[in-house]
Write a protein that binds this DNA or RNA. Structure first.
Lengths: 361, 361
DNA sequence: TCGTCTTACTAAATCGTTTTAGTAGTATTT
DNA sequence: AAATACTACTAAAACGATTTAGTAAGACGA
């Protein structure tokens, strides 16, 4: 009776087409094809210690059958049983602003390495969407949440890691830039070039870095004896992710004749807008005004003039964030303490800053 | 015996802290608290037609209990039972190149609207990673795959939509730019400005648009009587996503003294690199050479000079792709036909192109 | 020879839902 | 007054894995 030995999968697959056709093979099918129980097959395929007593010969048969039938464990069933989804949720303000994407690339690399996937949800700086998306992610059974440049107000039963967030919440790990060093690098650089009067473009209200950035810059300025008058400070308005906001902010600054010799922009995007506004005002960068950006996005290097900027290690911040989130997931939620991890900025000198040539001002 | 009426959830929650503490409430818990069966609770909460015979009063009690206990159905259990994950997989070359992010923002918007989430996996143009990531996504039980600028070689039992892909595979829906129009817009624009000798920067070998882009440009050039010599064509080499590749390609072009008056770059990134190379070669854009980019990434507008470019509606391509993928998922896999959906490019005129002033060449 | 150990497995419970197939009890029809 | 239909539910199977708690058969020791 050789016919009877034919296994199920082969029988069900009438014409021998390529592998794209057949219905999914379950553990039960593999077990049936071997006349073993699902239990045995499961423990063997999972290298469970329970399989210690199973003879090697049987194990080999099981592995072979699994291969031949192209058995792929059903992730959903496994997740249900094990109460692990190996999935995390990522909250970002905006997909297409460059910043989030840079951080995400670090996040992705680390997560994939560890067998995790992630869901992304963007909230466009709207509080209600942050709340809603968080709930969606929790409903999807993510094991933790990574909040990129996104304010987090309540603590949660899920592990949370916040990247460039500025709320101190119990149990939330923060990945932040060393803002003191960043401000110091910028001010020191301009000071060395002979600038003593500096204008500043603040970030938008909603941007989590806005406040620290300004404060650290002001105290660094004081330390170096550099002058920053209140009316040399302007602010980005609105959530347009293009340089337009920086352009408008700088126009306003110029309109009341501020007399700084260098300008410190909130980020590279706004620095680019600022340069355009200055050029339209007849001021050449860096000859008349030096300008320094922040972040070091790709465009910074290839802008004309190439931007001097304070680089944030965005990709690294992403992978660090992912790493700590996974650590917290492993841990008992009770003993995850609030941690703050600081990464260091770099000063990248290019062509948008130069020696102060205004002997007068 | 009033004590006995206390329901489970209240009992288990010793001290009345905020909602962040309690363990998850299951359907069974809700049912038990009402002394009903899980069946009844399930049909009512799902508005199943089976609930028709349940009196309104009972329904109200059920809804109320669900609210009070803060019942959230377990997505995993539901997915297992219904064989639907409401999750799709997205393949991209690179997270941080701007292009993918722009498309993704359209994808995300559409998917979230329809209650779907997505997993992203990037492959950095490596065939083995494309293969591996696809398998990972399938193992995660995604309902379909969206391939962004990613070559797809085999058909699959899963619905696939390809955005800017160029393989025609049975059952795969393609979202593509109208490349003929794009080429025509570019050549026509340069022709109108008096340019008759045009250089071209081809894309990398691995980029799916490379071939069509060149072919459509060549035939448009022929149509308009514009000259493109073979040695005025250069190619991007390597997978550096920065303008460096465009810079190097253009250097090479200049090194053997090509005499074009306008240059058509593969994309905006390479156009930016090209401009730098030209400038270093003593050629001013657009006075000496006009240059036209492709894509219209954000940086294009704020570059100096602002780039004239052919805009691809990337976000729209993303949302169209997502839309069609969801449609194919609804359908019977047998009757999804190979479809090609074309989107239209726009010519965006800025400052990198100008009238041909080289009377001689 | 009885009891204990080891080997090589398996039955059944479980994760949290949805769905199929009932079942009492009452109301309506014939 | 029996047959039928409706109301208001429930028990149990199913989705596809993992894990707990066995069991039958043979080996070994006292």
């Amino acid at each position: 009776m050789p016919k009877k030995d034919k296994n199920k999968a082969q029988e069900s697959n009438g014409n021998a087409t390529d592998s794209s056709q057949q219905k999914n093979i379950s553990l039960k099918d593999v077990a049936a094809s071997l006349k073993l129980s699902p239990t045995t097959v499961s423990v063997v395929l999972n290298y469970s210690p329970l399989a210690d007593s199973i003879p090697q010969e049987t194990k080999d048969r099981i592995f072979e059958a699994a291969r031949n039938l192209n058995y792929r464990p059903n992730y959903i069933a496994r997740s249900l049983r094990n109460q692990r989804t190996h999935t995390i949720g990522v909250l970002i303000p905006e997909m297409s602003d460059g910043y989030s994407a840079a951080v995400l690339s670090g996040v992705e690399e680390k997560l994939l390495q560890e067998g995790y996937f992630y869901f992304v949800a963007s909230h466009h700086h709207r509080e209600d969407l942050i709340e809603r998306n968080t709930q969606f992610l929790v409903a999807r059974c993510v094991e933790g949440i990574l909040a990129i440049d996104t304010p987090i107000h309540h603590q949660s039963f899920l592990p949370i890691v916040s990247i460039s967030g500025h709320d101190r919440i119990k149990g939330v790990t923060n990945i932040v830039l060393n803002h003191e060093t960043a401000a110091q690098l910028a001010i020191e650089h301009l000071h060395k070039l002979g600038h003593r009067k500096i204008g500043v473009i603040k970030g938008q209200q909603f941007s989590s870095d806005t406040e620290v950035r300004l404060n650290t810059v002001l105290s660094a300025a004081q330390k170096y004896g550099v002058q920053i008058e209140n009316n040399w400070i302007t602010q980005l308005i609105g959530d347009d992710p293009s340089p337009e906001t920086g352009y408008l902010a700088t126009k306003k600054l110029l309109s009341h004749g501020a007399e700084f010799t260098a300008l410190l922009a909130f980020n590279d995007i706004s620095a680019i807008g600022a340069i355009r506004a200055l050029r339209e005002g007849g001021l050449i960068v860096p000859n008349d005004v030096s300008i320094i950006g922040f972040d070091d996005i790709t465009a910074a290097e290839y802008h004309n003039p190439a931007l001097t900027t304070i680089r944030q290690p965005l990709k690294k911040m992403g992978s660090l964030g992912a790493e700590h989130l996974l650590q917290n997931i492993q841990k008992n939620p009770a003993d995850t303490l609030s941690l703050e991890i600081t990464v260091e900025p770099d000063l990248i000198i290019r062509q948008s800053t130069a020696k102060n040539q205004n002997s007068e001002r």
